[in-house]
Amino acid sequence: MKKYAALLTIALAFVFFYAAGDLPQIGDKDSPANVHVSPRYIEDAMEEIGSPNLVTGVLADYRGYDTLGETTVIFIAGIATAMILRGKKEGDDAE
């Protein structure tokens, strides 16, 4: 079983190392991730939101609906943990 796992990992390694050649150089100002949406956030956030911390501005204002979903996920994870562990233990049914 470990043999197949190692073979699969090596195959995936070749895919990753081949794809790494096409990724943008680290720190590139003109890479696709840095020219598409974020310049608008950096330029306009100060006038539109008035919050100097851009991460908070993006998280709570531009993508506030997203963050509501994330908060709900965390809340549900807490409820799930409590519900999994607070049920009856096996064999406790007799009491």
Partner: peptide, 17 residues
């Protein structure tokens, strides 16, 4: 770029829970 930071901030907390 502030966008990856905003996305990964929530990902870290969700991974913890």
């Amino acid at each position: 770029n502030p966008l990856p930071h905003a996305l990964m901030l929530t990902a870290i907390v969700v991974s913890l829970s």
